[in-house]
Design a protein around this nucleic acid. Structure first.
Length: 356
DNA sequence: AAATCGGGGAC
DNA sequence: GTCCCAGATTT
């Protein structure tokens, strides 16, 4: 048996001194906390996640608490974090854990993969970090590191490139010493997030200097290959900000699919004709008395949204629609108990923006 | 294979 | 302004 330094042992040695050892989900490192952190960290930076994680585990400290909570509470705890399907899937997965796995997360790759919101990489991250199982991950950090170390060209999100990266990630598992899988997984992510960063990686301090092909070939700056650019379409919509005599705001639950699914938001319509038609069927008041507020620009990954708020005060719902489950008057203190899109929450904040 | 799904950090 | 982040799911 050779004792030559491997990809894994080099990263592990670097990890001892330079890794992150004080992240909140590491103390204590339970399966539930690892799972929750991995879901929150999908496409979301560590710095953003930390306060959400702390608040979430304080309110819902284990699988059974999560499974027993109303979806609105889960969405409220997720409000502002984005990609709300993660919260809905997390909630559904917790219920499945109670029904099928005795209220615990299953210690099995296929069983984890079968839970909503857990894909191949997240399953590997949970198995390795929660139980020390020998499983690979392939997140943005690992993709970047592997693309450089092995000089893999092509956008890492392309299926063919991703397949090659999974093979490389799997091959490196053989070099992980027994009992070190949790640290190895953490080491890869810390290494990619801090030393082998997207901009200006610290190659002079890198433990992989003598094996990194990108460094040898002078291609560190160009790898990994950026995602192909696409034009962003722009969509416009009207947001109806209705307040009753008590200053409560009318919120509407969004449909179960699409953007901001199942969140509470302002009634939204593509144009004035649609807005007026909805208003006249639902509201006792004068549509033309609306105040025109400052537009809100919001950028998604795949399009831009320009929201034009129209505001009324002292209106009421028509009797025929007062008992609709998807419409409710909400007082300011209740806003924190509901999942509300970030730009809408901003719009409803104490400084509501001035009419123009 | 491509599109969908948020919000913000860092440049 | 840009790109992308501890990706998964749907089409």
């Amino acid at each position: 048996m050779s004792h030559a330094a491997t990809f894994a042992t080099r990263l592990l040695q670097w990890f001892e001194q330079s890794g992150r050892h004080d992240l909140p989900w590491q103390h204590p490192r339970t399966p539930y906390r690892v799972w929750l952190s991995e879901i929150m960290l999908q496409q979301t930076q560590v710095r953003v996640v930390v306060p959400y994680f702390e608040r979430f585990v304080a309110a819902l400290p284990d699988v059974r608490a999560l499974a027993g909570a109303p979806l609105d509470e889960v969405l409220a705890l997720w409000s502002g974090l984005g990609y709300y399907a993660r919260a809905r899937h997390l909630h559904a997965a917790a219920k499945q854990c109670v029904e099928r796995h005795g209220g615990e997360l299953p210690r099995d790759f296929d069983a984890l993969l079968a839970l909503p919101g857990i894909g191949r990489s997240t399953a590997g991250a949970i198995l390795s970090q929660a139980w020390g199982e020998r499983a690979a991950i392939l997140d943005g950090n690992v993709k970047r590191v592997l693309c450089r170390v092995h000089a893999v060209a092509g956008w890492p999100g392309a299926p063919a490139v991703e397949k090659r990266l999974w093979a490389l990630a799997g091959a490196h598992l053989d070099g992980v010493p027994d009992g070190r899988m949790a640290d190895y997984t953490q080491a890869q992510m810390d290494f990619g997030a801090t030393l082998c960063a997207r901009h200006d990686p610290a190659c002079a301090l890198c433990p992989l200097q003598d094996t990194c092909l990108a460094l040898r070939e002078g291609r560190v700056q160009e790898l990994p290959t950026p995602r192909p650019g696409r034009p962003l379409p722009e969509r416009r919509a009207l947001a109806l900000l209705l307040r009753d005599g008590d200053g409560r705001v009318l919120l509407q639950r969004r449909p179960p699919t699409g953007i901001w699914a199942a969140l509470w938001s302002l009634p939204e319509h593509p144009d004035h004709a649609a807005a007026r038609a909805w208003f006249e069927r639902h509201v006792r008041g004068d549509f033309d008395a609306a105040a025109v507020l400052e537009p809100v620009a919001h950028a998604f990954t795949h399009y831009r949204l320009d929201l034009q708020p129209l505001a009324w005060q002292g209106v009421d719902l028509l009797p025929a629609v007062r008992d609709r489950a998807d419409l409710r008057w909400v007082a300011a203190p209740e806003l924190g108990t509901l999942g509300i899109p970030a730009p809408v929450r901003t719009l409803l904040a104490p400084r509501p923006g001035h009419a123009r």
